[in-house]
């Protein structure tokens, strides 16, 4: 029998398999279980009341509100445009399509601080348009518009990336049938394409949400760190931690981690659901032949 893989016929695990399982538990335990356990232990070090008090502090509340606002705005904008971009790239073939696909992927490979820096180059005090805009009373850098732009950049590709493979696989038959029946563009998008891609869309939206909530580097560069004004939850965590307010920092970290993990957890559920629903093509053609 094979030393490296379990044989389905044998009930006993081989020594090699036991070693492998032990190593897995060790790695997972040390690298992946300890950190979240530590977050909650540190948060509750002075008791639940202290933890709750630190996340209901005015600056903390304002950070939570700003994070939720920025996340909502980024999700709405990037989802609206991301859906149109996925439609364009999935349903049409045209010159330059490959370039667009590559451009949409770029933000994934960009370091978070670079994603923040680029906005300062445009709107910072030494940026191209920063001063001009300042004179007419528009502030983007070190203010919420800058935070939103940085978040938009960082979460840019997710909706399109999750939708595109599925929408390509679906082909154009249903859309062509709909247009022959007289449906307009919006009707086709809303009534035909998106309902059939709903789980992928939801998954992309949740991924965007998780990343938008947790973004630190990019936002840190453009925010200006004004507590109560331009501090999001991750930035507030940094401020608290650097100010040796460990319990408060970890309480906030625990809240943010719960929010992000819940979002990601929901996404795994939907993705499992998506995999269960066979792709459109396989199904409608499945009659035989």
């Amino acid at each position: 029998m094979n030393a490296l893989a379990s044989s389905p016929s044998s009930d006993r695990r081989s020594p090699a398999e036991i070693t492998l399982i032990a190593a897995t538990y060790a790695i997972v335990g040390l690298m992946l279980v300890l950190p979240p356990v530590l977050v909650f232990t540190e948060a509750l070090r002075s008791g639940l009341a202290a933890a709750l008090a630190s996340i209901t502090d005015p600056d903390a509340l304002s950070a939570i509100r700003l994070t939720l606002e920025m996340t909502a705005a980024a999700v709405i904008i990037n989802t609206s445009f991301g859906v149109l971009a996925a439609w364009l790239l999935a349903k049409y073939r045209f010159p330059g399509r490959g370039v667009l696909v590559a451009l949409i992927e770029i933000p994934i490979s960009v370091s978070p601080v670079v994603a923040g820096l680029v906005w300062l180059l445009l709107f910072g005090t030494q940026g191209w348009w920063g001063e001009a805009l300042n004179r007419i009373g528009v502030t983007i850098a070190f203010a919420t518009p800058g935070i939103l732009l940085a978040t938009l950049f960082v979460t840019f590709p997710f909706v399109t990336r999750t939708l595109l493979p599925l929408m390509e696989q679906q082909g154009r038959d249903a859309e062509e049938a709909a247009t022959l029946l007289g449906a307009s563009f919006w009707r086709i998008l809303w009534g035909v394409t998106l309902p059939e891609a709903r789980w992928a869309l939801l998954s992309g939206v949740l991924l965007t949400t998780a990343r938008a909530m947790g973004e630190f580097g990019a936002v840190s560069v453009v925010s200006g760190h004004i507590p109560g004004l331009t501090e999001t939850m991750p930035l507030h965590i940094e401020t608290l931690y650097n100010g040796y307010q460990s319990v408060a920092a970890f309480s906030m970290a625990a809240l943010l981690a719960i929010m992000a993990m819940a979002t990601v957890g929901m996404r795994s559920l939907f993705e499992a659901r998506m995999r269960r629903e066979e792709p459109r093509k396989a199904e409608t053609a499945g009659g035989g032949a």
């Binding site: 947790g214 973004e215 991750p234 981690a257």
Partner: peptide
């Protein structure tokens, strides 16, 4: 992937 980087950092 899921945990925000700032949380990872201080942890």
């Amino acid at each position: 992937f899921a945990i925000p980087t700032a949380v990872t950092g201080i942890t």
